[in-house]
Design a protein around this nucleic acid. Structure first.
Length: 226
DNA sequence: GCATTAACCACAG
DNA sequence: CTGTGGTTAATGC
């Protein structure tokens, strides 16, 4: 609750559990808390990156302008680190991050982050573990994206929102049809059509952006086979 | 050939 | 911004 104190912050990362009081104080002094609204860009592709970013709460899309069109790489929900690879991996960002709803973010100075890595191996190990999990997730996602057909990818995303983001079968899609297409590698028209079909087949109940999953069994089956 | 899948275009709310 | 219909190209029986 206390926004000034990292020690008392309820949204802080698991890695910071390995920091002692003195280090937490250091973190506090090298950290700026910023609030973003829906549609605000947190950082932009090709711009210089110089901070470690931690999403305390909210929803963020990570997207990249590819050779053909826009691609949403993933959608993340706080609390989670954002963009460590693009901050440490190169001078400029390889992708953009945009808030999909009200989002609270901490910008942490790269110098203190590096200090923690250098001096606290538990902290470093925790960070590496998170990066590893991310890469594994990307591999799975990549194969699914390439090998499944349209409705399978849509079903996959619907399950993702229900199970990983909202923990609810009934939710409001935080994306336009175009963005949902960018996320699932479909045209916006295909997204409309497939959602309409799932609706008429009774798998989901569709009302604009409001979606309720009625038949999770069939949705899972479409995700698996389609 | 014929069917299926999915993108592109156009047009209407 | 969305939904729908027609068209078209690629792929697979």
């Amino acid at each position: 609750m206390n926004e000034k104190s990292c020690k008392l912050c309820s949204n802080r990362s698991s890695a910071t559990n390995f920091l002692n009081d003195k280090e937490l104080k250091m973190l506090e002094e090298s950290c700026v808390d910023v609030k973003f609204h829906k549609g605000d860009v947190i950082f932009r592709q090709n711009a210089l990156s110089s901070n470690i970013i931690f999403v305390k709460s909210g929803l963020v899309k990570i997207h990249i302008t590819g050779p053909e069109r826009e691609q949403i790489l993933k959608i993340i929900k706080g609390p989670i680190y954002l963009g460590i690879p693009t901050t440490l991996g190169d001078k400029v960002n390889h992708y953009s991050a945009t808030a999909l709803m009200e989002t609270r973010v901490c910008f942490i100075s790269l110098d203190s982050f590096k200090d923690f890595i250098a001096s606290n191996s538990d902290f470093a190990y925790e960070i590496i573990t998170e990066l590893c999990k991310n890469e594994l997730g990307h591999f799975d996602h990549c194969v699914n994206q390439v090998q499944k057909q349209s409705q399978g990818r849509i079903a996959e995303s619907l399950c993702f929102f229900a199970e990983d983001i909202f923990n609810e079968l009934n939710f409001s899609l935080p994306l336009s049809r175009q963005e949902f297409g960018d996320l699932t590698g479909n045209s916006r028209e295909s997204v409309s059509r497939i959602l309409a079909n799932l609706n008429s087949d009774g798998v989901i109940s569709l009302n604009g952006k409001n979606i309720e999953i009625l038949d999770m069994e069939r949705l899972r089956s479409i995700r698996k086979n389609g």
